[in-house]
Simulated assay, not measured.
Amino acid sequence: MMNSDFFHLLYTHIEERDYNNVYQNLKHDEDYLEATKAEAELCIQFENLALSEEERDIIKKWVASIHTQNAAYSMVMFRMAMQCCFSLLMQLGNLE
């Protein structure tokens, strides 16, 4: 038998969120806003550097590879978290 209290608690937590989409949540997340501001400032500094086109191209490719690696890492972590959540739900529901 499932513990309905757990699901009620989860449902209540989700319902108490102010926003139901990523964009609205990001607009109000202080860490995200701070990181976005820092990225914009660094981008301006990068554009003002006296670099050749070849040097700029190498740096841009390097940054792109870091972003690609971070995106792949995030997806692996997301899949692992989802697997953990489904496993927990199966255990709570005695559905093993």
Rank of each mutant, 00 (worst) to 15 (best):
M1R: 01
M2D: 15
M2G: 15
N3S: 06
N3I: 14
S4T: 13
S4W: 15
F7C: 10
F7A: 07
F7N: 02
L9V: 05
L9R: 00
T12I: 09
T12W: 02
H13N: 04
E15R: 02
R17K: 11
R17V: 06
D18W: 00
Y19T: 03
Y19C: 04
N20D: 04
N20V: 12
N20G: 11
N20K: 04
V22C: 03
Y23M: 03
Q24H: 04
L26Y: 07
D31Q: 12
D31G: 10
Y32F: 11
Y32M: 11
Y32R: 04
L33H: 09
E34N: 09
A35S: 06
T36P: 00
K37Q: 03
A38N: 13
E39T: 09
E39R: 05
E39L: 13
A40R: 10
A40W: 02
A40D: 06
E41P: 01
E41C: 03
E41S: 05
E41H: 08
L42F: 09
C43H: 10
N48W: 10
L49I: 08
A50I: 11
A50V: 12
L51T: 04
S52T: 13
S52F: 01
E53T: 08
E53R: 01
E54S: 11
E55W: 01
R56H: 00
R56M: 01
I58F: 08
I58G: 03
K61H: 06
K61P: 00
W62R: 08
V63T: 10
A64G: 06
A64Y: 10
S65N: 11
S65G: 10
S65Y: 09
I66H: 05
H67F: 15
H67G: 04
Q69F: 14
Q69V: 09
N70C: 14
A71I: 11
A72K: 13
Y73F: 00
S74T: 07
M75N: 15
M75W: 07
V76I: 15
V76C: 07
V76W: 13
M77G: 10
M77P: 04
F78K: 05
F78C: 09
R79Q: 05
R79T: 12
M80F: 13
M82N: 10
Q83E: 09
C84I: 14
C85D: 01
C85Y: 07
C85W: 09
F86W: 09
F86A: 05
L88R: 00
L89T: 06
L89R: 03
L89E: 07
L89D: 06
M90E: 15
Q91W: 11
Q91H: 07
L92E: 14
N94L: 13
N94C: 15
L95R: 15
E96T: 15
